Computed example of a mutant assay.
Amino acid sequence: MANAATEELIENFSLFDDWEERYAYLIDLGRKLPDLPEAERTPESKVEGCMSQVWLLSEVEPGNPPVIRYRADSDSQIVRGLIAVLMTAYSGEPADRIIATDINDIFNRIGLDRHLSPNRRNGFYAMVQRISDTAARAMKASS
Rank of each mutant, 00 (worst) to 15 (best):
P34D: 03
E38P: 04
E48G: 09
D35H: 05
N108D: 06
D105A: 15
F107L: 15
V79W: 02
P65C: 14
M87N: 03
N3E: 09
I131L: 07
A89R: 02
D96N: 12
S117A: 09
K140E: 08
A135C: 09
R71F: 00
D105I: 02
I110A: 10
D75A: 13
A39Y: 01
A136Q: 10
E61N: 13
S14Q: 14
P37L: 15
E59M: 14
N12A: 05
E59I: 03
A100G: 09
F13M: 12
R121Y: 12
R69N: 08
A135N: 12
V128K: 06
S143F: 04
D96G: 12
T134V: 02
S132K: 10
Q77E: 02
L82H: 13
D17F: 06
C50H: 01
E59L: 07
D18Q: 11
R130T: 00
I68P: 02
M1V: 02
D35C: 02
M51S: 06
R121H: 07
A136C: 02
A141C: 15
P37T: 09
P37K: 13
S142E: 13
A138L: 08
A24N: 06
K46Y: 04
I27C: 13
L36H: 11
L33Q: 03
T6I: 06
T101D: 06
S58N: 11
Q129E: 04
E8P: 04
I83D: 00
E20Q: 11
T101G: 03
I110P: 03
F13Q: 13
D133H: 10
L9K: 08
N108F: 07
I10P: 11
S91H: 09
C50I: 00
R22V: 03
Q77M: 09
S52A: 12
M127H: 00
M87S: 12
P94I: 08
K140W: 01
D113N: 13
D96W: 14
E8C: 11
M139Q: 05
P118S: 10
V54D: 03
L9D: 11
E21K: 14
P65D: 11
S76T: 06
N3L: 04
L57Q: 05
A72Q: 01
S52Y: 01
N64A: 14
P34Q: 10
A5K: 11
T6Q: 12
M127V: 00
I106K: 08
V47E: 01
A4E: 07
R31T: 02
A89M: 03
R97D: 05
I103M: 14
A126R: 00
E21N: 06
R80L: 01
K32Q: 09
